[in-house]
């Protein structure tokens, strides 16, 4: 289990994370979503032990990560390690020797097996600087797997538009589900949506919401706006909406009005409010041409 207790991270006098608290059960798949500089990568770097100077407490299986140095956490960073003078084999054996989890023969066999599994055997003696970013990600995944970590962190793993890469990576990650704790940091839910149990949405260092995927989707639905197109009596319609306590964020131009409905009740209640507002408008002589929920993509909620 991973537990964050009021974690604050400040780098060069900039607050990267503010009072972050959450817990992730073993073998769950979580995705931290957010805009650029929202702090999602910082969370991964804290779990992996890259960032050490933070306030608060981070526990992995009850052990304070500031005190324990041999936690089994692997991270695939967004930024790739640029070294044009080291071959794939040298790179993997270097980290293999640092992890100390396998002897030389075991390590060589493991590297060969994994390179074959990912169809990358031909790259074994190629220098890192000569391979593309997608291939590099698979090699980096092998680096992480050498240590056989219980927790694997993926920072922006589904980048670019290489469909073949996305599918191969997605299929491999699926094989690890329910066997390892997997945490993603991403700006969108492409590929991740199917495999995540939890979502955490970050905004400028604040964890806005951390909950089960379905709950976050429900929240997203609540946040959706209603779009109304009026044929006449716009002013009257705006006054009716302003007088309704469940309606917020009213904006209008020409014959279009948009507004949001706020309620702490369940989906059914919100739908009943939607219906009652429409009925109220019509009963008060407002000629409504269309009345529909604005289609907001989930990502739009946090990507500004």
């Amino acid at each position: 289990m991973i537990e964050f207790k009021k974690v604050k991270l400040n780098i060069n006098n900039i607050d990267i994370l503010s009072d972050i608290s959450f817990s992730i059960a073993d073998k769950k798949t979580v995705c931290f979503l957010g805009n650029k500089s929202s702090g999602k990568t910082a969370i991964l770097k804290l779990i992996s032990g890259i960032y050490k100077s933070f306030e608060g407490e981070i526990l992995i299986d009850g052990i304070d990560i500031k005190k324990e140095h041999k936690l089994k956490v692997g991270i695939l960073n967004d930024r790739i390690e640029i070294d044009n003078d080291i071959s794939v084999y040298d790179y993997l054996s270097f980290y293999g020797n640092i992890y100390h989890t396998k002897d030389k023969n075991e390590l060589d066999t493991f590297i060969d097996d994994k390179l074959s599994e990912f169809s990358l055997m031909s790259y074994k003696h190629t220098f890192l600087g000569q391979i593309d970013k997608e291939t590099y990600k698979f090699i980096d995944l092998i680096r992480v797997l050498i240590d056989d970590p219980d927790i694997i962190l993926f920072d922006n793993i589904f980048f670019g538009d290489n469909v073949e890469y996305h599918e191969r990576m997605y299929n491999y990650i699926k094989t690890m589900l329910k066997k390892k704790t997997i945490i993603f940091a991403s700006r969108n839910t492409n590929f991740i949506e199917d495999i995540c149990d939890y979502y955490g949405i970050l905004d400028r260092g604040h964890l806005v919401i951390f909950d089960k995927k379905n709950e976050v989707h429900r929240y997203a639905d609540i946040a959706n706006k209603i779009e109304v197109e009026i044929i006449s009596n716009v002013d009257s319609a705006v006054n009716i909406l302003k007088n309704n306590k469940s309606v917020v964020d009213i904006s209008y131009s020409d014959n279009n009005i948009t507004f949001s409905i706020v309620s702490s009740e369940d989906d059914k209640h919100i739908k009943s409010i939607e219906s009652s507002i429409l009925k109220e408008l019509i009963d008060n002589g407002v000629k409504v041409y269309s009345y529909r929920k604005q289609q907001v993509r989930f990502e739009q909620l946090f990507s500004g």
Binding site: K70, V73, R79, E81, R143
Partner: peptide, 15 residues
Amino acid sequence: YRDNIIDNLHSARVK
């Protein structure tokens, strides 16, 4: 640091 080597070394718990 720029080549991201330090990040990977830290994640491998190198002091």
